[in-house]
């Protein structure tokens, strides 16, 4: 196991290097600059700006700088937000996105699995139809529409929640739901389908024959094995959700990390693009690693080293 993890860490480092390299060249290729605006300024000023931020260096020098930044995990000053370091920007906004993300994940997993189990247990009966319909609605109504509707009706018309901002738990409920619902719908569908596959397995029949109740069987036996595809989905999903959602943060005016992923690119704020990309990549790569480790915990038949010849 340790050897496996060590090997994976090596792969993570290689993957990170590829990501940094690819991102660097994409940034180089994309037209625009952090200083571009409708109002152009004299070429001399542009040259000064490029010199100040090292954009006049040949590409290999800039590339080397980004590699050093990544190794030391210090991405330097934002080119758009004067005097602000990329690290500070991430450090200030990530805890907010993390909090919201964890809340959303709990909701998504909780409701998703609950609905999925209900659907599977009452397969092709009314509760299944109801739960499945809700799940499909969740999947097909995107979060930006849902967020707008909830904000307008629940927060403004009914006054049940604050409209926007980030000043306490009450402020996080609507955004967390808006993020969670699509994922909950998908988790429900996934759980339902793999529960159905398991429910006709011998071991489930055996458990029922032993006299275990419907729900006990679910929680002691079926669910555990049915969770495998869900866990696969959850790994990358968690990485995405805890690093923030641009649209939800925008609608609810939450100062989270999600916006930096988008605005840094539209601003061509190169240092912030690289910083957020590396940060997200690390979280994603580790989330995927954890999923793989969980596989063998959930299903001992899965061997991490791969197929035996």
């Amino acid at each position: 196991m340790l050897k496996y993890i060590f090997k994976r860490l090596v792969y993570i480092l290689i993957a990170l290097w590829v990501i940094v390299t690819a991102t660097f060249f994409l940034m180089q290729l994309a037209p625009g600059s952090p200083f571009a605006s409708e109002r152009s300024f004299p070429p001399q000023i542009e040259a000064q700006l490029n010199a100040k931020y090292g954009l006049d260096n040949p590409w290999y020098v800039q590339y080397k700088d980004y590699l050093i930044d990544t190794v030391t995990f210090d991405f330097g000053e934002s080119m758009k937000y004067k005097g602000r370091s990329t690290n500070d920007m991430i450090a200030e906004s990530f805890p907010i996105s993390l909090t919201l993300g964890i809340e959303a994940m709990i909701l998504a997993i909780g409701f998703g699995i609950l609905f999925g189990v209900i659907s599977a247990l009452y397969h092709n009966k009314f509760p299944d139809y109801l739960a499945s319909t809700l799940a499909v609605l969740g999947i097909s109504v995107p979060s930006f529409i849902l967020a707008g509707l909830m904000q307008y009706f629940l927060a403004f018309k009914l006054g049940m929640f604050p409209v926007s901002g980030w000043k306490g738990f009450a402020y996080s409920i609507l955004p967390a739901f808006a993020i969670a619902i699509t994922h909950a719908g998908f988790i429900a569908k996934l759980t339902r389908s793999s529960m159905l596959e398991q429910s006709n397995s011998d071991y489930v029949k055996m458990a029922r024959a032993k006299g275990l109740g419907k729900w006990t069987t679910v929680f002691k036996h079926t669910l555990r094995n049915a969770l495998l595809p869900v866990v696969t989905y959850l790994g990358p999903l968690t990485a995405g959700v805890v690093t923030g959602s641009f649209i939800i943060e925008q609608i609810f005016a939450i100062p989270g990390l999600g916006k930096h992923f988008v605005t840094s690119i539209t601003n061509r704020d190169y240092t912030v693009i690289m910083g957020t990309t590396v940060f997200y990549s690390i979280i994603l790569l580790f989330a995927v690693l954890i999923v793989d480790i969980l596989y063998s915990v959930i299903d001992p038949r899965i061997k991490l080293r791969g197929a035996k010849k």
Partner: peptide, 15 residues
């Protein structure tokens, strides 16, 4: 406060 979304700002004004 910084509110990027136009609709949100209008709702805040209404509220």
């Amino acid at each position: 406060s910084m509110v990027e979304n136009e609709a949100t700002a209008a709702t805040m004004f209404d509220a």
